[in-house]
Amino acid sequence: MAETTLPAAIAATKPRSYWSRVVARFLKHRLAVIGLCFLTVMGLIVIIGPIVSPYDYDYQDFELIGMPSEFSQSHWLGTDELGRDALTRLIHGGRVSLAVGLAGAVIATLLGTLIGALSGFYRGWVDAVLMRFTDVVMSIPTLPLVLLLSGLFRPSPPLLVAIVGILIWMGTARLVRSQFLALREREFVEAARALGAGGARLMFRHILPNAIGPITVAATLAVGSAIMLESALSFLGFGIQPPVPTWGNLLNSASAWLAVAPWLAIPPGLCILCTVLAVNFVGDGLRDAMEPRE
């Protein structure tokens, strides 16, 4: 009896999609919500800030050249040694850092997902070749490589994004591979195969949508790594080149004045710290929301 009445019961309820349940669970994670709010505000500031700021990022106040100056009415965070407004440069630097971070994470996620998917789906020699390649890339020490490259050339922003992406995709690839290895054995995949579905359909229509949770989490955490990496590269002089500011090269140029003008180094440092922390909290929240242990 129950069997025949249940469809009626189903018809009476609203369909609750997977995503509405994810949102509900995410909102219960306080730190993640705070992190998301912080990132939203930060995003708005770096988008709107340069438009409303009275200064350009490379505008020099000739009266203040020579020494970093302290906070004032006209320069809220002071100026650097070249008389440029620190707040304007911080906001503009945030724009560059966040853009490079996001774009780098997108590249890393696409690359990692593709390699992981092929590895986990086809197994055998495809898996062996791709995973040994992943191991090789993983074993390359990032900073010495970057120092070597920086001796050879200065990257343009698109090239920098590509370099950031290429240096951080490996974790995603391993994660996606393990997801694919597990999911390809599930019966719904076998059912699709029994109906004659080919490799691409099985991978992208049946397996990938079921791995989207872990991939989203990995992508979020990759944004954090990409921002960190971009900052590290810029700090070492291999990132975006002055006069264009990024949080990393702001920190770099401020380091020379750390003893006399610490107010120049603290804001970009705090921005990097808080942004990466917020991204990681959001990643944790997404993990709990998308992969509930039920």
Partner: peptide, 18 residues
């Protein structure tokens, strides 16, 4: 494949949840 089909044991695993 259109002439031979299969019904699986576990109805919770055999349908794509997405």
């Amino acid at each position: 494949r259109s002439r031979m089909q299969i019904i699986f044991q576990d109805p919770y695993a055999s349908l794509n949840p997405r």
